[in-house]
Write a protein that binds this DNA or RNA. Structure first.
Length: 515
DNA sequence: TTAGGGTTAG
């Protein structure tokens, strides 16, 4: 018998007929009704679960179909519970079940015991299935168990392209870009997803310029990009301020009539805002009809970045008028807008309202924004009080804000304590050592300044050179401190000299202190 | 008997 997808209009009739005639006892018929229901109503997973529960036969196919529906609706925990229910019911999982279950475990990190699935797969000898194999590698990679992922990969004689891609992605997610690149170069075949995984790896590891270069190479190889790739390109463009690249992506999407996913819409607005083109950010935002909370957050955060706090709050009101409830990211955008605009009173109100009115408990990031706001306003006592009442340990950004305040106020004693704390939190970050050494130097404590630099050297911490990027005609140029390898370095230095001289003539004095 | 993988922001 061939697979049947029942039309939406006939579903209730066919379902009742199947019950009356007793055909519902046929697992194939019951499975088809369940699948047809979920095709017609993709969000009807709870009804589908009820149908499964009342069905006389619980086939593996029915469970797999429902597992798939839960994952499509971003409900991995429900999928995991359904899998347990499946096992309790005595229904045998098959090669189609495990990729779904492994994905659910990857998406629900609170379930840390997913490794037992591997044992079940081995017992059933399903590890040779290419889908199961790639899913296992992905599962271990996402869980940070890259050694195990590699072991699974190496166990198969001829791993498929998905297995290669899953391992590549796993290395990138765990910060090992060189190994990811090695796999990308070595893999016997590449497809769009492999390119996408490598580009995404560069974006995740904060190497946006490499992501853009690889994207150019991908286009030269005549591989057509999809939404996933373009979202990553927009993120990379936003990171380095490559407005022309971002605009090119926007045009490409329109020219090819590509359907814009919510991620793409958000990334476009984010890109324009981060590249400083606020007008395009606002125009693009207005053009989109279905605005979800993420899109609103992108424009609120973007506007706030440029010190337009009041406009950010106006947008927040518009968002509420549109019936979109805020989430925790909305408040990060608003608090950050207050910080960039010096709106202390509004920031305090906003911080209070988020838990009292909107029932959103402040996370570390919200405290971080609030501390930043108070630090910039010079309200040190209030800032210290807030840090002391935080229900979690402060992060390096919070200590950094506190350190800046101490430095500005010339409070060397407190600055010393905070600076040491920062080094303890981020021992590999050269900036922490340099800031403490500068603090000592600013108060004439030269020996201690030298001692901090010595500790840094002994620990093998390399001073990361300052770097700035600029995009000219679609090309991103990178400049490091002391680096004169740029082909137009001499001309650029001449212009900078003229500018520096003009500034001196106007009475400006060079400030070399680290902020 | 049908179905399942690897890539997607802040």
């Amino acid at each position: 018998m061939r697979r049947i997808i029942f039309p939406k209009s006939l579903l209730p009739l066919l379902h009742s007929r199947a019950i009356i005639s007793g055909q519902i006892h046929d697992p194939f018929v019951a499975g088809n009704i369940l699948e047809s229901l979920l095709r017609a109503y993709p969000s009807a997973h709870f009804q589908a679960h009820a149908l499964l529960s009342f069905s006389p036969h619980h086939s593996t196919f029915m469970y797999n179909t429902l597992l798939h529906a839960y994952l499509c609706n971003n409900l991995p925990t429900h999928a995991i519970l359904l899998f347990y229910e499946m096992l309790l019911h005595g229904t045998t999982p098959n090669n189609h079940t495990f990729p779904l279950v492994l994905k659910a475990f990857s998406q629900a990190p609170q379930y840390k015991n997913g490794a037992f699935i591997h044992t079940m797969i081995l017992k059933r000898r399903l590890d040779s299935d290419s889908y199961v194999h790639a899913s296992l590698i992905h599962f271990y990679g996402a869980a940070g168990c890259i050694v195990e992922a590699r072991r699974v990969f190496d166990e198969k004689q001829l791993p498929g392209i998905s297995a290669w891609t899953a391992l590549l992605s796993g290395y990138a997610k765990n910060g090992n870009l060189s190994m990811a690149w090695e796999l990308f170069v070595r893999m016997p075949d590449r497809n769009l997803v492999s390119w996408s995984a490598m580009i995404s790896g560069y974006v995740q590891c904060r190497k946006p310029e490499k992501a853009l270069a690889l994207f150019q190479e991908m286009m030269k190889s005549k591989v057509r990009p999809n939404c996933s790739v373009l979202v990553n390109v927009l993120v990379a463009a936003a990171e380095v301020g490559a407005l022309q690249v971002g605009k090119w992506v926007h045009m490409y999407l329109e020219k090819n009539c590509m359907c814009l996913s919510s991620n793409l819409k958000t990334s476009l607005v984010h890109m324009y805002a981060r590249c400083g083109d606020l007008l395009s950010a606002k125009q693009t935002f207005r053009r989109f009809r279905d605005k979800n909370v993420d899109l609103w957050n992108a424009i609120i955060t973007g506007i706030g970045l440029y010190g337009r706090g009041e406009e950010a709050f106006e947008l927040f009101v518009n968002m509420s008028d549109d019936g979109i409830p805020p989430d925790d990211m909305t408040f990060i955008g608003l608090l950050s807008a207050c910080s960039h605009s010096g709106m202390v009173a509004e920031g305090r109100k906003c911080f209070e309202a988020m838990s009292k009115i909107y029932r959103i408990e402040p996370k570390l990031e919200h405290y971080s924004c609030m501390v930043d706001l108070l630090a910039k306003a010079g309200l040190v006592n209030e800032m210290v009080q807030l840090i002391q009442t935080m229900p979690m340990e402060p992060n390096a950004r919070i200590w950094g804000s506190l350190f800046s305040s101490c430095r500005i106020l010339g409070d060397i004693t407190s600055g010393e304590i905070v600076g040491k704390q920062l080094i303890q939190l981020e021992p590999r970050n050269s900036g922490c050592y340099v800031q403490l050494a500068n603090l000592y130097a600013s108060s004439g404590r030269w020996q201690e300044a030298v001692a901090v630099r010595d500790i840094m050297k002994r620990r093998g911490v390399v001073l990361e050179p300052g770097c700035s990027l600029i995009e000219v005609d679609g090309m991103v140029h990178e400049f490091l401190v002391g680096d004169k390898t740029h082909p137009k370095a001499n001309e650029i230095c001449c212009v900078l000299d003229v500018m520096a001289r003009s500034l001196r003539v106007e009475g400006y004095v060079l400030n070399n202190s680290v902020s």
